[in-house]
Amino acid sequence: MISYLVALLTFGAIYALLALGLNLMWGIAGMVNLGILGYYALGGYSSALLTMHLGIPVWLGVIAGALITALFGAATCIGLVKLRDDYLAIVTLGFAEVMRNIAENFVSLTNGTDGLAQIPRPRLGVTGSDFNVVYLVICVMVVLVVLAAMERLRAAPFGRVLRALRADPMVAASAGKNVLGFQVRTLAVGGFVLGLGGALYAHYLTYISPEVFQPQLMIYVFLALILGGRGNNYGAVLGTVLVLAIVEGTRFLADLVHGLDAVQIGALRAFVIGVAFIVVLQKRPHGLLPEPRRIYTDPAARS
């Protein structure tokens, strides 16, 4: 049971980075992005290729992968800022599809659907299941560092401007804020976090393929954020834990079901996950940890 839990928590930590990156982009700055897996994959592929072909150390590859994704995030911003929410949702969904398509077909670089196998693991001085525990500890520490950084960013003037942009970009612009500049920086920082997640993923699995673009994962990350509390960084992490608990819990539930064939068990599991999400969303639409807001109460209104 232990090493299963270690694996589960490692995935949890990696997915938490996705939720934190998305929280900055969408939760705080209000730019919805259904293409987060495109950034995640870019970080993973970049770090994998750099460490495999150039032989650079894994930690350097991870940072390089995150930086490449950050640059890419800033670049995508140029095409996206003019779009309204609903358009942005669909266009970014398509953006991930384009990335998947390239990962599948640009065989000379990505090795196509075969994926990149035998990606080096970092040298941690331990092997076997000890390695997995140490890697988990590293991932958790990365999440904590990112969480702290995101919290500082949110509370800083930068975060206040982003929330103003989310509320109304026009007003923010007329208040003299360089809207595009803020949005570019947001997507760059968010991209960095997503790319970091992807790189940690690639070196953990020692494998990356176009399968990283699994639509469920994107849905899970969004649900984690809504469940935890959109705009709240702690909520993003808590939501990830909850979503993973629901998703993996059904794995054990499936063992208890009898008299169904294998497809029906698979379908039932996905059905239960979906229903659980919808129910939780309906019961807690603002999430478990709603976004912290400063509430000014008008003294005159108090009677």
Binding site: L223, A267, L268, A270, F271, I273, I278
Partner: peptide, 16 residues
């Protein structure tokens, strides 16, 4: 986003 979860539910009813 909820409609994405709904999509999963409906598709799996069909699969079931």
């Amino acid at each position: 986003i909820a409609s994405l979860a709904l999509n999963m539910v409906l598709e799996n009813i069909v699969r079931f």
